[in-house]
């Protein structure tokens, strides 16, 4: 609680923020602060300057454009969980947001912050990986697009350079014929997931045409499960269990919360449940 003092500045546009990140030593971006402030309180991080971007107008809100949701990096979890455009256009994202932390964290925490923090068990980076979303990053001068599944490099590290921000996310809308699911197991409501699984299935005439399956909590970043996706191709709902065995393409680690073996078993269970739920949802009118 007794933290080393630091300076604070509130900025009103992206260029101003990025200039400060370039010019000031030990400067760090502050948005909702729901991951950053716990690190500071625990003495794990001692910034020199926090650059508060929460009031940058260009990074707010959610808008629907041609085939996509344009999600501002500053959209908070509560907004994503309740926003009518998100719930209708990409319900998997809304559901994932409703799993984050507790109501207080959801009121302040932002989707851009969750991505930039890159906790390997976090819900929103997992959802964006499954959805094939694009991260739009900027250093205030140029803009670059990064695929969501390539954005995180490892535990708490990403492709973002020190003077870059996540500006917004481009999330594909849920097309006709697609079903989805988001399942996770955590020890207590509000905890980070031990394992979480996001599934998108496109089905027609009772068969899987296309599958997107991703998992978090089984490695250093969220991963697409290409082997699972391939195995589902052409399956009917009744054939799903026989198509899904142990998931061999991940190598989870043991930690204080769960052993590698437990995580592996849990992953197989959640994939089976999640795929069935997504299939059922694809058949809803």
């Amino acid at each position: 609680m007794f933290v080393k003092p630091f300076r604070y500045v509130r900025v009103h546009d992206v260029a101003e923020a990025c200039d400060l990140l370039r010019d000031e030593e030990e400067a760090k971006v502050l948005a909702g602060g729901q991951s950053l402030l716990p690190l500071i309180n625990a003495g794990l991080f001692e910034p020199g300057l926090l650059v508060d971007i929460a009031h940058v107008p260009a990074m707010q809100g959610v808008a629907r454009s041609d085939g996509y949701l344009e999600v501002g990096a500053l959209a908070c979890h509560a907004e994503l969980a309740s926003n009518a455009e998100v719930r209708a256009g990409q319900p998997l994202l809304a559901r994932a947001a409703s799993h984050v932390g507790n109501p207080r964290i959801r009121n302040r925490g932002t989707i851009g912050g969750s991505l930039a923090h890159a906790d390997p068990a976090a819900e929103l980076p997992l959802a964006l990986t499954a959805l094939g979303a694009t991260v739009v990053a900027t250093d205030g001068r140029t803009v670059r697009e990064i695929k969501a599944d390539e954005f995180a490099l490892s535990y708490l590290s990403t492709q973002l350079r020190a003077d870059e921000l996540v500006a917004h996310l481009r999330v594909p809308l849920l097309g006709p014929g697609w079903g989805w699911s988001f399942t996770e197991l955590s020890r207590r409501s509000g905890d980070f997931a031990i394992v979480a699984v996001a599934v998108l299935l496109r089905c027609a005439d009772g068969h899987v045409l296309e599958a997107r399956v991703a998992a978090a909590g089984v490695g250093e970043r969220p991963v697409r499960l290409g082997g699972v996706e391939a195995a589902l191709s052409g399956a009917t709902r009744l054939e799903l269990p026989e198509r899904l065995g142990p998931v061999r393409e991940v190598d989870p680690a043991s930690d204080a919360v769960a052993s590698a073996e437990y995580r592996r078993g849990l992953l197989a269970t959640l994939v089976r449940r999640g795929v069935d739920e997504a299939f059922a949802r694809s058949e809803e009118p």
Binding site: M1, G33, Q34, L37, L50, D52, A54, I105, N107, R108
Partner: peptide
């Protein structure tokens, strides 16, 4: 909100 992880300045 959690006032322990929010700066007064924010």
């Amino acid at each position: 909100v959690s006032s322990c992880i929010l700066l007064a300045a924010q």
